[in-house]
């Protein structure tokens, strides 16, 4: 297997996504299968080929550095899980 159960736990932590203990083996198998597919890329020599990050080789368009957005704090916080006095609430980070 290309991905071990231990690696699944490590990747899941990097992705900040917990995985049930019972599912770790299955994900190891699934991810190994996908990477097996991906490794077919090794059939071809791509040295010297320019990587293609964007389909039309566009440049990032820049805009003038001026304020264009209006304040929508109340609207945007209306569906937040927990807010207080205009702030998003999370569990205490610093004791």
């Amino acid at each position: 297997m290309l991905i071990t159960p231990n690696e699944v736990m490590k990747i899941a932590h990097l992705a900040r996504m917990s995985v049930d203990h019972d599912d770790v083996e299955r994900y190891a198998k699934d991810l190994s299968g996908i990477l097996g597919l991906v490794e077919q890329m090794n059939q071809v020599d791509v040295r010297g080929i320019e990587p293609m990050a964007h389909p039309l080789d566009m440049c990032q368009r820049l805009r003038a550095d001026v304020v264009t957005e209006v304040n929508q704090r109340d609207t945007l916080q209306a569906h937040a899980p927990a807010v207080e006095r205009g702030l998003f609430l999370v569990p205490k980070v610093i004791e």
Binding site: A15, S18, V19, Y27
Partner: peptide, 27 residues
Amino acid sequence: DLTDLYERSRAEGFGDEVKRRIMIGTY
């Protein structure tokens, strides 16, 4: 704590296929 908030919210919110792809991409 904050890590638990992230990890469980995402584990509960996403289905299997989405989790597979996030993990492949993260890797």
